[in-house]
Amino acid sequence: MTTPAPEKSARRRRPSRKQDTSSRPVLRLGLAGWIVSWLVPTAVMGGLLLALGFLPGLNDEGFLAPLIPLIAAAAVVVGIPGTLLVSWLYRHQLRPTVHILGYVLVGLLYGPVVLVVGAGGLIPMLIPLIGFPAGILLGIGRWMAQPLARVENPDEAPEHLATPETKDPEHA
Results as ranks from 00 to 15, higher is better:
His92Ser: 12
Leu105Phe: 14
Ile140Arg: 00
Ala157Leu: 10
Ile100Pro: 00
Ser16Phe: 10
Ala157Gly: 03
Pro133Glu: 06
Leu48Lys: 03
Arg95Ala: 15
Ile140Leu: 12
Pro4Gln: 14
Arg24Tyr: 05
Thr3Leu: 10
Glu165Met: 07
Glu61Ala: 15
Leu48Gly: 07
Arg95Asp: 15
Val98Gly: 02
Asp168Val: 04
Gly62Ala: 09
Pro69Phe: 02
Arg95Gly: 15
Ser37Glu: 12
Arg14Leu: 01
Thr163Gln: 09
Ala51Gln: 10
Val44Asn: 05
Leu129Lys: 00
Ile68Thr: 11
Leu115Ser: 07
Lys167Thr: 13
Thr21Trp: 06
Leu52Gln: 08
Ile71Gly: 01
Gly121Glu: 01
Ala5Glu: 13
Ser16Thr: 06
Gly33Leu: 04
Leu67Ala: 14
Ala172Ser: 11
Gly107Asn: 05
Glu159Leu: 09
Met1Cys: 06
Pro158Arg: 12
Thr2Gln: 12
Ile136Gly: 02
Gly102Ser: 02
Pro169Tyr: 06
Trp88Cys: 11
Gly46Phe: 00
Val104His: 12
Ala119Asp: 04
Phe54Pro: 02
Tyr110Cys: 05
Ala10Arg: 10
Leu58Ile: 09
Val36Met: 08
Ser22Gly: 04
Leu126Gly: 01
Gln19Arg: 14
Ile80Cys: 08
Ala73Val: 15
Leu29Gly: 02
Ala172Gly: 12
Leu126Arg: 04
Asp60Thr: 13
Arg17Trp: 00
Phe63Thr: 09
Thr166Asn: 12
Val113Ile: 15
Glu152Val: 13
Val77Met: 13
Pro81Lys: 14
Ala119Tyr: 07
Glu156Arg: 12
Leu67Val: 01
His160Phe: 05
